[in-house]
Design a binder for these strands. Structure first.
Lengths: 211, 211
DNA sequence: GTCTATAAATGGATAGAC
DNA sequence: GTCTATCCATTTATAGAC
């Protein structure tokens, strides 16, 4: 249009809304899969045509790049914030907790991120950043082990992956209606650190392997 | 075919090998995603043309159906086998352990299963069977809670999902070279039941909520 | 900013010769 | 059983009018 349509909130430059486009795209990418979603689908959801969609974004891959970058930014911000704690076990606990909160807050972005396979350069870049984050977590587990606050009869990398496997699995079923993210974060930390069992319930077979 | 090409192992009927086709397809589906993989890609990997591929299988979706069915059969067999144990906590432990073993043994099939989104009827059927399996697990957790062997301050469905989130995350990183599945299964059970911490390390803030 | 029209490539799938 | 050739639908993306 030619001037008279002030959006609810002012924007830096153009007329329309790139975030609305991104939101719709991410939603569809998650629902049907990135590859199974066409630019026509995205345009249709927004009530515009494909050409108009291309007026707002440069292409399908840019949408993916924006989404995964925002998700990763959230996770790295969480990782940066835990450095205040003295003990490694406390940094780990806070990182687990913050990650759950980020995941809940940016649920759709993180969901998309976790499904990236590495088909294109954009996807490979996202995978590289994810590996970097995994490395941070593994280091924390190792430090907590050296500190003595985490059992050392399990491999650090394995433990790190299992715990964040638990965290990441939330994208498959957590929904805002299901409760406060803070409550969920506490449950995850509890399970990760103390497990399901009530107390020293029996021990089936082999217990002391090496230590 | 016309007679003279005995494969290494006799088959029921035809000449060639449908399993080889399925294997190659599943590998590609996992590597690039189902939708991003074309029938040309599958044929190329096998060293044949697309038409020849269609001589062996009826279509892309049939490949997907065969794969996810085999994965689900493995999981339900595991679920059927735990009924021997008396206590719910033991049935749960065995189901977690068996699931890890099935996942390791049919790694590629299960990986594909866990990525299904529900776009087609085949996928929806797979999702329905997955939900059925989830229900079995949740029931076991509830029974173990009623029994007193599992802490009741966490929601049963949440706990069930988190534990199997941990199990399922294995498809993202477990590889046969990484060790014996039995060892891994033990680690998962240990983490799920007893957690990461060494002992009664400190308790941050809120501990007794309602019970 | 939004549209119609269309380009150019790729997708799943089939026909029919050898 | 495998091939070449081809159909037809869909895809990403662009040109250009309004």
């Amino acid at each position: 249009m030619d001037g008279e349509r002030p959006p609810q909130r002012r924007r830096g430059r153009p007329g329309h809304d790139q975030d609305a486009v991104l939101n719709a795209a991410v939603r569809l990418f998650n629902a049907r899969g990135y590859d199974a979603t066409s630019m026509f689908d995205v345009a249709e959801t927004l009530g515009i045509t494909k050409s108009t969609l291309y007026h707002h974004v440069s292409g399908k891959e840019q949408l993916l790049a924006m989404a995964v970058d925002r998700a990763l930014d959230g996770l790295f911000e969480a990782a940066a914030q835990v450095s205040g704690e003295k003990r490694a076990i406390d940094r780990l606990e806070r990182l687990i907790s913050s990650s759950v909160l980020v995941l809940a807050e940016r649920l759709e972005l993180v969901t998309l991120l976790l499904r990236v396979r590495g088909n294109t350069e954009v996807e490979q870049h996202a995978l590289a950043r994810r590996r970097e984050f995994d490395g941070i977590v593994t280091d924390l587990v190792k430090q907590a082990q050296a500190e003595g606050s985490i059992r050392s009869d399990v491999d650090a990398a394995t433990a790190a992956r299992l715990i964040f496997g638990m965290v990441n699995s939330l994208v498959e079923w957590y929904r805002p209606e299901r409760g406060h993210p803070e409550t969920l974060a506490r449950t995850v930390v509890e399970l990760a650190f103390r497990g399901l069992r009530t107390e020293a319930t029996n021990t089936t077979q082999d217990d002391q392997r090496r230590q």
